[in-house]
C-alpha cells in the first residue's frame, strides 16, 4: 500500500544507495545479486529483524509479485515462487528488481520514511513524497549506481548490472 511520507530527492537517494552498498560490504560499482542477498540480510547491520519466504504463486494476489510486511517482530519479505525462480534461474532483470525493491522497504522504513497517516495520498501528491516511488527509485539507485553507469549505454547497463531494458533506459534519463 502506498503512503505519503517525508520528501526526498535523487541526491539523497544516491547517498542512501551508497550507504546500503556499504552496509552490505559491496563496492560502489559492483553488480548485486538480490537472491544471494536475501540469505545474508539477518547478518547485516540494521537488517537483523528482516526475514524472507518464498511462497506459492497463489499465496499472494495476482498483481502482487512480492511484498514486505512489518510486525512487532520485524519485517517479513514474501516473494512469489515465479518471481524468485525468474531471478534465480533466468536472472531476469525485472524479477531481480522486484526482490531488491522489497529489500529496500525495511531499509527505507529504518531511514525514517514513515507513513503520514493524517494525509491522504492524492493525484497532487508529488512522487518524491510517495513511499512506493521512493522505494522504487532507491532500488534502481542501488542496482545501477549513478557514478558507474554514467556514460554507459542501456545495453551495457543491462549486461553489467542484470537489470531490465526498461530499468536501464530509465537510468539514462536522470
Amino acid at each position: 500500500m502506498d503512503y505519503e511520507t517525508k520528501p526526498t530527492n535523487r541526491y539523497e537517494l544516491r547517498l542512501y544507495a551508497a550507504l546500503f552498498r556499504s552496509i552490505c560490504g559491496f563496492s560502489q560499482d559492483e553488480p548485486i545479486d538480490p537472491v544471494a542477498l536475501l540469505d545474508r540480510l539477518p547478518e547485516l547491520e540494521g537488517f537483523e529483524d528482516v526475514r524472507y519466504e518464498v511462497v506459492y504463486n497463489d499465496a499472494l494476489p495476482g498483481n502482487v509479485p512480492a511484498q514486505c510486511e512489518k510486525s512487532d517482530d520485524g519485517y517479513l519479505i514474501q516473494i512469489k515462487e515465479s518471481v524468485y525462480k525468474g531471478a534465480y534461474e533466468r536472472k531476469t532483470g525485472g524479477h531481480r528488481m522486484h526482490i531488491i525493491h522489497e529489500i529496500m522497504h525495511p531499509f527505507v522504513d529504518k531511514l525514517g520514511f514513515k507513513p503520514i497517516f493524517s494525509r491522504r495520498l492524492t493525484k497532487e501528491t508529488p512522487v518524491y513524497r510517495r513511499l512506493e516511488w521512493i522505494v522504487m527509485a532507491l532500488a534502481g539507485e542501488v542496482m545501477m549506481p549513478y557514478e558507474s553507469t554514467e556514460g554507459k549505454t542501456a545495453e551495457e547497463i543491462m549486461r553489467i548490472y542484470g537489470v531490465s531494458e526498461r530499468a536501464a533506459k530509465k537510468r539514462l534519463t536522470y
Binding site: 537472491v35 544471494a36 536475501l38 540469505d39 547478518e43 524468485y84 525462480k85 534465480y88
Partner: peptide, 9 residues
Amino acid sequence: RVKEHEVMG
C-alpha cells in the same frame, strides 16, 4: 548456504 555461496533455490 551463505558459507557455501548457495541460495535457497
